[in-house]
Write a protein that binds this DNA or RNA. Structure first.
Length: 475
DNA sequence: TTTAGGG
DNA sequence: CCCTAAA
């Protein structure tokens, strides 16, 4: 038996808003006429766009590129969405690697294919302060206007970039600017995936179902859609007309403006007319870009107070394509570097570096049980094999990298060496701290003896230096 | 990618 | 936690 699901737009839509806070790369277009326009403030309207899906990027196979930017992108939460969909090997790998289960030989064998969670900074997008805005992230494109200018999850864009073919959506606006060469700033609040069907055996796993859906969506986004611009319910067919001529300007009420995704006849993506002033940049090879539209002729009016921000802003501003809403001081946290960098075209690129700064990961204090696991692993493996420690005791803790473990050990050692009164945070049992000191002492004296690790016993270390430990603590 | 350390 | 030089 096979089940077939009809995925309604509303069920599958992915809202930019759901992660506008953490990931603007929303991959779905829509097939809806409803458009939401949000007016952040009087002088701007924006369309929150979804992105073409970068899902097909070879995440796993991507070699470690020196390009930090790329690495960051890969590490973004976005990628996490459809990770191993195509890498069975990796899945198995995960499955097989259980806590303390792998053997050395196994490590090596798996090592090559493993996908270590290197840069994950982006992940914090989802949980940092920005979440407050995302709110329930329920569906819909909410009609509610953005109220929080500063924390708005939406990403303001000043120029229309080749809207990715897969994206479409709705939008509208009301605005109040009167300038001539203004940029129309639109925020596409969300995109919806056109209805589609899938068929899958009942025996399939939920995981495969997810992959199937993702693949279907990816396929649709890939090349099967085109964007249709609607104005007052009517399709705007002339691609050569300027927005102004069409009636899409900052001076007009854009309530009637909308975007809709429709099947792409020729399989060729929608392309924006090159002569359009707003089309300032094309997306690079990377498909994970958001189309941005904006209407903000006078950026300087909204210059943020943040020095850093201003700097980045200026940098970007030097190029028409780089304008972005600075009304959002948390811009950096909300906009993935990729989009920013992409926007920065030409000369103005050098300073845009700051825009490239990734979001700091959320702080996640180690629990006592984690400390216990770490200590136990280090006692066994030593202090120079963090990758192994990771695999052994934290393989299932994706948010703990071997670097994190190494750092934690460093802090544990420090904690163990200071007096209890100087310690902060959740108190770590003295017993564990003693083990830390003992293990440290033990391994700092041992030569890298792989096999010796297996013979190492806590009792030995504790007995050997308990007194020293006590003395140190007292001191 | 990992390790090792400084920030 | 982040950033990076080295390996």
């Amino acid at each position: 038996m096979h089940w077939s699901w009809m995925l309604n737009p509303s069920e599958t839509s992915i809202q930019a808003r759901s992660y506008g806070d953490h990931n603007p790369f929303v991959p779905f277009p829509a097939k809806r006429d409803d458009v939401n326009v949000i007016s952040r403030d009087d002088d701007e309207k924006s369309l929150e766009c979804t992105h073409p899906s970068p899902l097909r990027e070879p995440f796993r196979s991507t070699p470690h590129i020196g390009d930090r930017r790329i690495r960051k992108i890969l590490a973004s939460k976005y990628w996490k969405v459809a990770p191993r969909s195509k890498n069975v090997t990796y899945s198995n790998y995960d499955k097989n690697l259980k806590f303390g289960y792998c053997r050395r030989s196994g490590y090596k064998r798996l090592r090559a294919g493993r996908n270590y969670p290197f840069k994950k900074r982006k992940f914090s997008y989802c949980s940092s302060e920005s979440n407050s805005d995302v709110g329930t992230g329920s569906e819909g494109i909410s009609d509610s206007p953005e109220k929080n200018t500063t924390k708005n999850a939406s990403i303001p864009y000043s120029n229309m970039h080749g809207v990715t073919r897969e994206s479409s959506s709705l939008a509208d606006l009301n605005k109040s600017f009167n300038s001539r060469d203004s940029h129309v700033k639109l925020r596409i609040k969300s995109f919806r995936v056109p209805e589609f069907f899938i068929e899958i055996p009942e025996s399939a796993t939920v995981g495969s179902l997810k992959r199937t859906v993702m693949e279907a969506v990816t396929a649709i986004l890939g090349d099967g859609l085109c964007v249709v611009v609607l104005l007052q319910g009517k399709k705007v067919r002339d691609d050569n007309k300027t927005l102004l001529q069409t009636g899409i300007s900052c001076d007009n009420h854009m309530d009637g403006l909308g975007f809709r995704l429709e099947p792409n006849p020729g399989g060729s993506p929608l392309k924006l007319p090159r002569d359009t002033p707003l089309l300032l940049a094309r997306y690079p090879a990377n498909p994970g870009l958001v189309n941005q539209v904006s209407c903000d002729p006078s950026p300087e009016l909204r210059m943020p107070n943040s020095g850093n921000f201003i700097e980045s802003y200026n940098d970007c501003a030097s190029s028409p394509t780089d304008m972005f809403d600075k009304s959002t001081t948390e811009y950096k946290a909300l906009v993935p570097e990729m989009s920013i960098e992409t926007l920065a075209v030409g000369p103005a690129h050098k300073k845009s570096k700051q825009s490239d700064v990734a979001q700091r990961r959320i702080r996640r204090p180690f629990s006592i049980s984690e400390v216990e696991a770490l200590v136990q692993a280090v006692e066994k493996l030593g202090t120079g094999r963090w990758r192994d420690v990771k695999l052994r005791a934290f393989d299932n803790a994706k948010h703990r990298t071997y670097v994190d473990l190494k750092d934690k050990w460093k802090t544990l050692l420090h904690t163990a060496r200071i007096s209890p009164q100087q310690r902060r945070g959740e108190p770590v049992p003295q017993e564990l701290l003693n083990r830390v000191l003992n293990a440290h002492t033990h391994w700092s004296q041992q030569q890298p003896l792989p096999e010796s690790c297996l013979v190492y016993h806590n009792s030995t270390m504790i007995a050997s230096s308990q007194r020293d430990v006590d003395e140190k603590i007292l001191g």
